[in-house]
Amino acid sequence: MVTHAFIELLKQFFSDPATNLFPVPYAPQNVHKALKAIDSGKVKMISPVEVPDGFRGKILYDREACIGCQMCLKVCPSETIEFVPEGRKVKFYMSRCTFCALCTEICPKKCIKMSKDFLMANTDKYGPDMIVLDSGKFVQEEKKETPKPEKETDSEKPQPKATA
């Protein structure tokens, strides 16, 4: 009995598989050794699928620009952000972050932003990679650059309204 499913399956049989084999084609016996091999260049890593602009990944924090207003603490749903009274700065525990990006929007100085980095798996949730203290000065740099044209949206232009 030839069903539609059979036909579709046979089509798939003769086309390329849909999977992206990240990071290596077959599960390695020892993940850490495989990662080391990738780092040393012995094994070529198959890169993950590209993420679009506006992806919410690991937090970037411009420590210098921060004024310590603590608004981000008020909106953070998961207590990711800890206030450090010395210097009136904050630090971010990425293992708790829910990537809602509310802190980036409420920050009056825009000194928090989200990178495209999503490979954050770690065995130690308080490890150096999992706490964001300072990721360089990006607020000033961005100001120095000529202001990029905003993504063109059609919200300003008149649009045909919904017709009845």
């Binding site: 679009p52 506006g54 992806f55 919410r56 990537f99 990006a101 929007e105 063109e152 949206t153 059609d154």
Partner: peptide, 27 residues
């Protein structure tokens, strides 16, 4: 993929806010 383009992430979209949404959609 569309959801990722619109909202930023694939599963938890963080798209809605009281009074509207948080990101506009570009051309």
């Amino acid at each position: 993929d569309i959801l990722e383009i619109l909202c930023g992430n694939r599963v938890n979209y963080a798209y809605y806010i009281f009074g509207g949404v948080r990101r506009d959609i570009s051309k």
